[in-house]
Each structure stands twice: as C-alpha cells, then as structure tokens.
Write a protein that binds this DNA or RNA. Sequence first.
DNA 1: CCGTATCCCTGGCGATACTG
DNA 2: CAGTATCGCCAGGGATACGG
Lengths: 135, 135
Amino acid sequence: MSAEAGVARAAPYPAAVDPKIEALVNEVIGRVADKWTMIVLDVLAEHGELRFTRLAELSGGISQKMLTQTVRQMERDGLVIRTVHPVIPPKVEYRLTDLGFSLGEAFCGVWLWAADNLERIEASRQAFDQRARDV
Amino acid sequence: MSAEAGVARAAPYPAAVDPKIEALVNEVIGRVADKWTMIVLDVLAEHGELRFTRLAELSGGISQKMLTQTVRQMERDGLVIRTVHPVIPPKVEYRLTDLGFSLGEAFCGVWLWAADNLERIEASRQAFDQRARDV
DNA sequence: CCGTATCCCTGGCGATACTG
DNA sequence: CAGTATCGCCAGGGATACGG
C-alpha cells in the first residue's frame, strides 16, 4: 500500500485485510446475502419455530424446491435447527440457532439503511433517468 | 396474526411491518446485496476515487461488462459519482457518495459477523457433511 | 482508455409428478 | 406433510469485437 499521498477521500476502513480472509468472507456473504436466505431468516426471526408449509406461506411465493434448498443450506451453515417429529403425517419444524439470530441482528443495519433510504434512492433513480432522456 | 399462545421462542423483532414497505426494502436489498455491488462498494470505500481500469483490477476477476453494469446501477441508485474528464485518452473516475459510504457502514455489521463466524460456519458444515455420510 | 453491442452457453429456478 | 426427481425455460454473465 505504501504512502499514498493524494487520495481524494480517506476511507474510514483499515484497508489492510488478509486477502485470503477477504475471499472467505466474500464467499460467506455471497451465500448468506441470497434473497431467499434473507427472507427465511427474517420470517423465522419474527415467528419463531415453524413447520415447512407454514414457513413457505410466510415466505411469500417461494417454491417448494427453493425453500428446501435454502433451509438445507442454512442448516448446514448452522443457522437453523431442523427438528423431525417421527409421526404420521410427518411434522418438521425449523427454528433459528443463536448464530442465525446473530446474523439477523447483523443484517438489521442493512435493513434499516434500506428502509431509511428508499425515497432517496427512488429520487436518485428518477433524476438519473431524466438526465438519460435529456441526452 | 391474532393471539399466538405457544410460540416457542419470542422473536426480538417488532414483527409488524407494512408488507408494502417490506417488499420495497426487499427489492432494494436484493439489488444492493448483489455480489459485485458489494465488492465494488468495498473497493471504493477502501481506495477512494478510482479509474475504471484500476477499479476492475482491484475488484478481482470482474468482467468489463459486469463492472460497467454494476457501476451504472450504483450511479443510478446514488451510491457512486461518475466523473468524466474530457481528455484524450478518456479518463473516468468513480467515488462513493455519502449514501454509498453509509451503505458500506451498514454492511460493516454483516462483514464483521462473517469474519467473526467463519470458523463456526466451517465447523458446522463439516459436522453436517459428516452426519450426511453416516446415513 | 472507456465503454457499447453481439454471441453463446451455463445453471438457477419454477412447474410437475412421484414417494415415505 | 415433507420432501426427492426430472424436465425445460430463459436470464445472467463471460468472451469477443468494435466505436468514440
């Protein structure tokens, strides 16, 4: 990195992170920032333990396939606990682990940011599109 | 929602959000949580203002097409400023807006979470895969 | 140097049908 | 009810070539 004299705006970041760690972090974020993962995380955080079908309903338009896939990955990553009740008809319940909850809290900041800045973003888009038309 | 008596684990969330707002927030998050957007955001936060080619180098393996696309979207959303210097050869510089920086800060929590929990996730995955093999 | 335009192909995802 | 298996579409994104 050396002595960079003329950087226009100093970043509020340490800037020096092990690139290997960075790659791993990106991988984890990439996985975790998935659309359905976030929605399922949110639903489980709000509703506590849920059965498969109920979870699907509350997750708004997710297909069975994607729900299974998402929830399996989350289980593998230690974000949810999957409890199978050996009864007929089958009953399977899902709930967040502490790790899952902690991720939810971490994402809370992004959530709030999005909610706070919706209008600003919308305005920016309109201005941009307007400028594009002017050309 | 009515009176749900037996929820196993009360969520630390307000639980009552306007679903329309929620949809919008999801849309914004979906856009913003995109892999390349996050990487570019990170690179610009760390390095300040950058030219196109340099930005591509630092963003590790992004194609020209995706960089252009990503950066355009970010400009449209008001996350970056694009400055064209009318010289030959062309020179275009990108830097974050305040909104862009604030998004970076919001994501910081997720970043830290990922960094903190890498090992735990890795361990969880191995345990899961082991269990799968045992079956 | 900084893009836009075009081709092409992989794989993500929905829909459907079937099992324990 | 809670999955797995299979098919088929088409959009995302890489590679390449060209333009200002």
